[in-house]
Design a protein around this nucleic acid. Structure first.
Lengths: 218, 218
DNA sequence: TGTACATCAGTGAACGCGCGTTCACTGATGTAC
DNA sequence: TGTACATCAGTGAACGCGCGTTCACTGATGTAC
């Protein structure tokens, strides 16, 4: 057995406490907002002294970065799982919505107001790029059934983000469109901009999805 | 002359100082984020003592609410101005994008991560509803040229948000779609999610707009 | 199985800091007669 | 024009608070022989 799988009781305990700290951090995030996230408050809730948390996180910033990393990783896993049965945009979209509604503050950790001056570490941005792959698979457009738009030709030359994925420009465009449209409907819903308006946000979301997968006008 | 227009020097001075406080608050917001917005720091920048600001704002929360109110009012004015020459969705869309890019943190004051527990006062939410009118005008769909979808019939019965606007369900749907799609593309751009991806966000935005105003497939 | 040592989780005291907010005050500006 | 008074902007001291973080320490857990 390689040392990879070996885990001492101490390591297991460490991982457990780290997880509990993050759990309380997420709760604080959901209850009072990101600005109120404090190590001392978390420690108090856990029945520990403040400095004890420094055994587990080097600083408050490291904790927050870890929460962001977890959020990205969780979304990436959700996408991968939804794509396991084959490329399927509706499956991806509903997985995204379910994931977002399950705890909205985690969604805003990724897609919310950016903090001026904050730059996510490389491993986090690489997870973000990883999310694109299942989306591109699900957005594959069979033949060039539509005339190339100026944006398509632009995408032909600006496809670094596809990360080697051999998608046609129309597919690239469709992936970006799916991303922005679903995010648009979802983020307004999660932020509460639809509350009091009367209509059912889910119907708007699925209407957007239907339009993406094949508008009735076609 | 009614007392409405009369403005004493003192009143003018007050308005000036209030405006300057808000200017510094916006700068702090853009530089350090919402959590770092502090009355003491603003006072220091203005060469005043901390308590002096309490002549102008009853509390930190009132300042923030005022900034949010200003943001909504500014967006509503921008929309009204863009619609002055008649209903025109592209004009509205480009006005929105220009307004948002002019200072992104103001956009996020409205559409960014919601603060748990914060509820905007009624006058602010009424400005938010006011913004819908020009959008509905610009999204008018001539006849029922498309078969009614389930979402259309749902909107028929859930149109409180239209605030008496006599728009057809297809128009209501188109307005919601325009809102969410433009917001989706814009918010991801402003939050920096497209940086490093290579393509030009403006082309994506206008592609979405083109699709809204009349897809080439039709 | 027992002893000696190393590792490491957690504590309590302490640091300096900046925050929002109150209060009693000074001094300048405006108003009434 | 001058005097008496009211209004109000701004100050400085003070309040209690919670924050992130450091440090030297205690005591429990694990390791080596």
């Amino acid at each position: 057995m390689a040392d990879t799988g070996a885990e001492t009781p101490r390591e297991r305990y460490r991982a457990q406490v780290r997880a509990e700290i993050k759990k309380h951090a997420r709760e604080q995030l959901a209850t009072a907002g990101a600005s109120a996230l404090s190590l001392n408050a978390i420690a108090k809730r856990m029945g520990m002294s403040g400095p004890a948390l420094y055994r587990y996180f080097a600083s408050r910033d490291e904790l927050i970065t870890e929460l962001i990393r977890d959020a990205y990783r969780s979304l990436a896993d959700t996408f991968r799982a939804a794509a396991a049965a084959g490329p399927d945009l509706p499956a991806l979209a509903h997985a995204l919505r379910g994931w977002a509604l399950h705890d909205p503050h985690r969604y805003f950790l990724i897609y919310g107001t950016p903090v001026p001056g904050y730059h996510a570490p490389d491993d986090v941005t690489s997870i973000a790029r990883e999310i694109m792959a299942p989306l591109l698979d699900a957005c594959a457009v069979p033949p060039p059934d539509t005339p190339a738009t100026p944006f398509h030709t632009h995408l032909e030359d600006h496809r670094q983000w596809a990360d080697g994925h051999p998608a046609a420009p129309a597919t690239l465009h469709r992936a970006l469109t799916a991303w922005t449209r679903l995010h648009g409907a979802l983020s307004l819903e999660l932020a509460g901009h639809f509350t009091g308006m009367g209509f059912d946000p889910e119907l708007l979301f699925t209407a957007e999805l239907d339009d993406l997968t094949g508008p009735p006008t076609r």
